[in-house]
Nucleic acid binder design. Structure first.
Length: 501
RNA sequence: GGCCCGUUCGUCUAGAGGCCUAGGACAUCAGAUUCUCAUUCUGAAGAUCAGGGGUUCGAAUCCCCUACGGGCUACCA
């Protein structure tokens, strides 16, 4: 209901109106460097990016590395590499900095301690001295009695003397948030109104015993300090939201807008994970998926332009122009590699040949060390070869024979097409090619068809052996075009070589 | 277990009470073109809108219940 009204209210907004909100919209992507960069994270980052660019706001990258156990500096690089590859440029981040830095949580510990102390001072938070064992025992007992596992609030109202006693005994305290009674509700931009009873939530930890913050706490402090206006994140953030809202309120911060994105799912409809196959963004790059194809594909998972639009291929600019949170779906979407591949080929086919060669170069270089990218021959050859590949990595196999005589030969195909019957015919064809005054598609076709007529055989009986002889394979471009592009010299040489096989 | 979120062709989705005999795309199948493969084009099949109850003259669309799926329930993020 509210969603609809919001959409209507936003519609009549003029350019000058949106210029007014400019700069006040700030969103952030906050990954933690604990491994590879998941496509699900990429999709979340993408929606943040699209939203920010659409409203001319700021897109921030913040690294959430508060878990000293699991973090690794090398993983932070993975984040940058992945974001860079997808073309998700952030306005503020740990590397280039910005007005609200630092952008790495491990460099902001003092800040969190300060705010945590503020909550203790106001009575909104308190130290709790239970040991891990005591907590475990408490949970076990609750489980035995079929009660929900929840902190029982034992240290909620310790006296100063009791606290001093624990301290004297050498116990370290965590800081727990004193959850107030009542209902917490918000209007989620993608889900509508979501409400929670605070009695469902126990007094959660905001500062660990080593004085570092927990996720929920650091997140709130940072989002506020970094002036984040719209929190766009995965739906696993849904159940954290009431905790965070209580924190915003206790701290006296303004509560941002929340938008919870549906998950990316695996084939079995559970949250997409390694079990489902490669899920790291960079894995797809390594498989030859183009960043623009991934960008396009991901944008359509859980979002669509609406209004009956049937277009599927969009440029980055079109996506930025059309993206709105109102059109984000609520239900999770299965990550379907088949469609990704289809989209990839769309981009592969229509991209400028120069760019294609640039992307293909690393694969080609393995077989063709002296590749000349600007060469007209190279461009023609690659252009022809790319017609039938599905991933850029396939180009090596599909194009090597254009440049080198040292290509792999399909032996099964050779046995079939290069026989004692066809070899003499190929020699005759070679002679006719040699005698041709012009070397082009039509003259070649004419020569082949004429010879076929003279020999009283079907053209196909020449065509297949020729392709085999000059490319080493049974499939590929039209033979006439293929020969024309390869050039007479190369063709004659390879036809001569056939006799020796 | 408790709480929260979700449910339209196999998959991604359109759908904002009558335009829905539910539209598009991927995948599938068939045909056309053809020297192969790929492309391209044409066509087919595929969803009683999770199920049940309401509200309404009329429901995929609004309400309720059920089922199923997912998430959260850490001194992880």
């Amino acid at each position: 209901m509210l969603k609809r009204e919001t959409a209507k209210l936003l519609k009549p907004m003029t350019t000058s109106d949106s210029a007014t909100v400019k700069n006040s919209i700030r969103v952030r992507m906050a990954p933690s460097p604990t491994g590879s960069f998941h496509v699900g994270s990429a999709r979340t980052a993408l929606f943040n990016y699209l939203f920010a660019r659409h409203v001319s706001g700021q897109f921030i990258l913040r690294v959430e590395d508060t878990d000293m156990q699991r973090n690794d500096a090398a993983y932070e690089q993975v984040i940058y590499e992945a974001m860079e590859w997808l073309g998700l440029h952030s306005d503020e981040n740990p590397l280039s900095g910005g007005p609200y830095g630092p952008y790495r949580q491990s460099e902001r510990f003092d800040l969190y301690r300060e705010y945590a102390q503020q909550l203790v001072a106001s009575g909104a938070a308190y130290p709790a001295y239970e040991t891990a064992d005591e907590l475990a025992a408490m949970k076990a007992e609750q489980a035995a009695n079929k009660l929900p596992p929840r902190y029982n609030g034992a240290h909620r109202d310790l006296t100063a003397e009791q606290r001093a006693a624990f301290e004297a005994a050498g116990r370290k305290a965590v800081l727990r948030f004193r959850v107030p009674e009542g209902e917490i509700a918000w209007d989620d931009v993608v889900r509508g109104r979501v409400a929670w009873q605070s009695k469902e939530i126990d007094d959660f930890v905001i500062q660990k015993s080593d004085t570092t913050p927990t996720y929920n706490f650091a997140c709130v402090v940072d989002d506020h300090l970094m002036q984040v206006s719209d929190v766009i994140r995965g739906e696993d953030g849904l159940s954290n939201t009431p905790r965070q809202i209580m924190l915003y309120q206790a701290l006296g911060f303004e509560v941002p807008k929340f938008a919870h994105l549906p998950f990316l799912l695996g084939r079995d409809r559970s949250k997409l994970s390694k079990r489902h196959g490669p899920v790291s963004l960079l894995d797809f790059r390594d498989q030859g998926i183009l960043p623009e194809a991934m960008f396009n594909y991901l944008s359509l998972l859980g979002w669509n332009p609406g209004e009956g639009e049937t277009q599927e291929i969009f440029t980055r600019e079109e996506l930025i122009q059309r993206f709105t949170l109102e059109n984000v779906n609520k239900a999770g979407a299965i990550f379907d590699v088949e469609k990704l591949h289809w989209m990839n080929t769309q981009y592969l086919k229509q991209m400028p040949i120069a760019r294609f060669i640039e992307l293909a170069r690393p694969y080609l270089l393995e077989a063709v060390p002296d590749l000349q990218a600007e060469d007209a021959y190279t461009q023609q050859a690659i252009n022809m070869a790319r017609e039938r590949i599905h991933g850029i990595a396939d180009i090596k196999d599909a194009a090597t024979y254009f440049f080198s005589d040292n290509y792999t030969v399909d032996e099964t195909g050779a046995a079939k097409h290069l026989t004692n019957v066809s070899k003499p015919r190929l020699e005759q064809l070679r002679q006719r090619f040699e005698a041709l005054s012009e070397w082009n598609h039509d003259s070649i076709e004419n020569a082949i068809r004429t010879l076929a007529t003279d020999l009283n055989i079907k053209p196909a009986e020449l065509i297949h052996p020729v392709r085999m002889a000059v490319s080493g394979r049974t499939v590929g471009p039209s033979v006439f075009e293929l020969l024309a592009v390869l050039g007479r010299e190369r063709v004659l040489r390879r036809l001569s070589g056939v006799g020796g096989r």
